[in-house]
Design a binder for these strands. Structure first.
Lengths: 195, 195
DNA sequence: GTCATAATGGACCGATTGGTACATAATTAA
DNA sequence: TTAATTATGTACCAATCGGTCCATTATGAC
């Protein structure tokens, strides 16, 4: 019927996400995006409408992927092992170059807190979903007698999330992988005492 | 000899810092700055050279002030009470409108990690200075037998800093002051177990 | 082939970016 | 009062921002 799209939309979105993840929303220009996505301006606007809408798509993608990582672990591991598994998968997995990029959701919250209400809110919602997923897993484990009940599941989840956020910030400072690992172990040690 | 400067440089710097603190480096435009600083373009460039140099001045000012808050507490309180005092002064002090602004150093690290090496580094150095100040205080307390020695002072300082960073992120999400307070208490509770 | 449809590349848009030039205004030493 | 000096306000700059327009190209249905 008509000329077919030449580029792979999924692939282009993926590349855009990586760039936004690394540089943030404001510091990523349209020419930057077009270059990494490998498409022309017209195709960009035809397929993604605006830079802002593209960013929202990227946020959703990132958030959903992060939740998927949690869900995979949650189906296989006891609740007490989930924080370590999650941190390892999202912070230390060098194969996916995540080590020094922090978390796109956290980056977004801090960059846009006083700049763009909606984008900040969207990132916050995704982060809350992760915290809630932890809380749910802890709650189940407590009901099944597999986890200490001196702290509520929600309290534990809140602690995990605070430490998670802290580690994400640390991971964007220029520390060596050894330093990050030490901080990482210290944090897990704190949680060990809390659980 | 010549026409005297009309504006108060210190005051103007202060206002600039507040704006950078809230909106970050990139999203703060020169007209924005001129408006809050209450000065004209010529005076700006005569006195502050460039936007970037002004930002560096603001970073230094913010970092030094934060350290001063710590030092004041450190001279008056036992080491074990320092984390709470520091968090209260920098996170919950509504009189200075700090509650929802997070920390300018943390904001800067995340915004500019992959964008501006030097600015990220300058913020990181200030954050490290704060962690070192905690470590020093803990070390002294341990030597004087006022603090548990099962963890090294450096480990404790690292934990405090990770939680500090996490709380700063949380404080830029739109949570109620009640929610922030709860998270805050949960975090201190974790540290209480660690110390 | 022809036609309808849609993707592409590139020229172009006004607005905004950080920064400069310069004429004017205000001050003090002489 | 004059001259030297410096601050200020305004006009201006090239570069870049995100976004639009449109002529061209490629495709499938008929």
């Amino acid at each position: 019927m008509a000329r077919p799209t030449e580029f792979d939309r999924t692939k282009a979105l993926e590349e855009a996400m990586k760039l936004f993840w690394a540089r943030g929303y404001t510091a990523t220009s349209l020419p930057d995006l077009l270059a990494t996505m490998g498409i022309a301006r017209s195709s960009f606007y035809a397929s993604f409408k605006t830079k802002r809408k593209l960013f929202i798509e990227c946020l959703e993608l990132f958030g959903d992927r992060t939740l998927a990582i949690f869900d995979k672990d949650a189906g296989e591991l006891p609740a007490a092992a989930l924080p370590r598994a999650f941190f390892e998968a999202t912070l230390l997995d060098a194969s996916q170059r995540k080590a020094n990029q922090g978390c796109m959701l956290v980056n977004t919250v801090l960059e846009l807190a006083d700049v763009d209400q909606e984008l900040n809110q969207r990132a916050t919602v995704k982060l809350d979903a992760i915290e809630n997923a932890f809380a749910l897993a802890f709650e189940r484990a407590q009901q099944e007698g597999q986890l200490d009940t001196r702290r509520t599941a929600q309290e534990l989840a809140s602690m995990v999330m605070t430490i998670n956020l802290g580690l994400r910030v640390k991971s964007r400072q220029n520390l060596s992988s050894q330093e990050l690992k030490t901080t990482f172990e210290n944090s897990l040690s704190m949680l060990g005492l809390a659980a």
